[in-house]
């Protein structure tokens, strides 16, 4: 059967469309000129200037901490939700939980940000707590990340061979031992993937953080955004390159680990 060339052409076009802007961004981060779009020779000077930009470094440090804490919270809570949904098709609150987990995946960020801010303000004026800042950003980021973790872990649980758990239980293992020695090792890659996804989502979020942040808590995307609004800047290109390469390295490693794990299980 003759195969159409249309899909292959679309694939090539699609990848070119997805990657050209990123590649251009990386190339121009090594541009000597301050005029970002005019090539004036190779130079790493913007990386040097970036290393001395205290505002960006402080914001990056805050963003990394917020991302780590919110990803950990989201992984814990999202995994609990996924386990509950997989364990029983009928428990009180199951459909409510499913609905609450579906919302954050598609909810426009401006709505989530506004809603969470108004909740925090209402709580603060009523109880004097919480003060807006890094803590409220962590809570907000964990809230939307829970849904993503639940999706990833649910997919893994659905693929999982339940007979292993049943066999362990039949051989007399108490429920906690079954969970720790059978279930956990099997879903561990999904927990890692969910944590990484949450971490990236948090590190990337501008809109929700802008709403719920307080004085003094400025995350990296907020600094990038205020700088980008003034136009293209070579330092932002350098920062973007570092972020892109870091993420590519992490995702590549994770994919390789998961792939290798699957192979050893199969053989």
């Amino acid at each position: 059967m003759r195969r159409s060339r249309v899909p292959l052409a679309a694939l090539a076009f699609g990848y070119a469309f997805l990657y050209t802007p990123i590649i251009l961004l990386i190339v121009y981060s090594f541009n000597a000129s301050r005029l970002v779009t005019v090539w004036a020779g190779f130079s790493p000077r913007w990386y040097g200037e970036l290393a001395h930009n205290a505002q960006i470094l402080d914001a990056a440090w805050l963003s990394l901490r917020v991302a780590a804490v919110s990803a950990t919270l989201a992984t814990l809570i999202g995994t609990l939700a996924a386990l509950a949904i997989a364990r029983s098709t009928r428990f009180p609150g199951r459909s409510v939980l499913l609905g609450l987990l579906a919302g954050p995946l598609v909810m426009p960020e401006v709505m989530l940000g506004l809603a969470l801010l108004l909740l925090f303000v209402t709580l603060e004026t009523t109880f004097g707590w919480p003060r807006r800042g890094a803590g409220t950003i962590v809570a907000a980021h964990a809230t939307f990340s829970i849904a993503y973790v639940a999706v990833v872990v649910r997919a893994k649980l659905a693929d999982m061979d339940r007979s292993l758990e049943e066999a362990a239980a039949d051989l007399g293992a108490p429920p906690l031992a079954v969970f720790l020695r059978i279930t956990m090792p099997l879903v561990a890659p999904a927990l890692g993937a969910g944590w990484l996804l949450s971490f990236t989502l948090s590190l990337d979020d501008l809109v929700v953080a802008s709403f719920v942040s307080g004085p003094g808590a400025t995350t990296l995307p907020m600094v990038v955004y205020s700088s980008v609004r003034l136009g293209v800047s070579p330092q932002i290109n350098a920062l973007a390159t570092i972020l892109i390469l870091t993420v590519a390295l992490c995702v590549g490693t994770a994919a390789w680990l998961i792939g290798r794990r699957n192979q050893t299980v199969l053989h």
Partner: peptide, 17 residues
């Protein structure tokens, strides 16, 4: 992979283009 890299930066890349 592009989805994992910063959304803000991917939008920003188009300003220069």
């Amino acid at each position: 992979l592009p989805f994992w890299t910063s959304f803000l930066i991917r939008v920003y890349a188009w300003i220069g283009i």
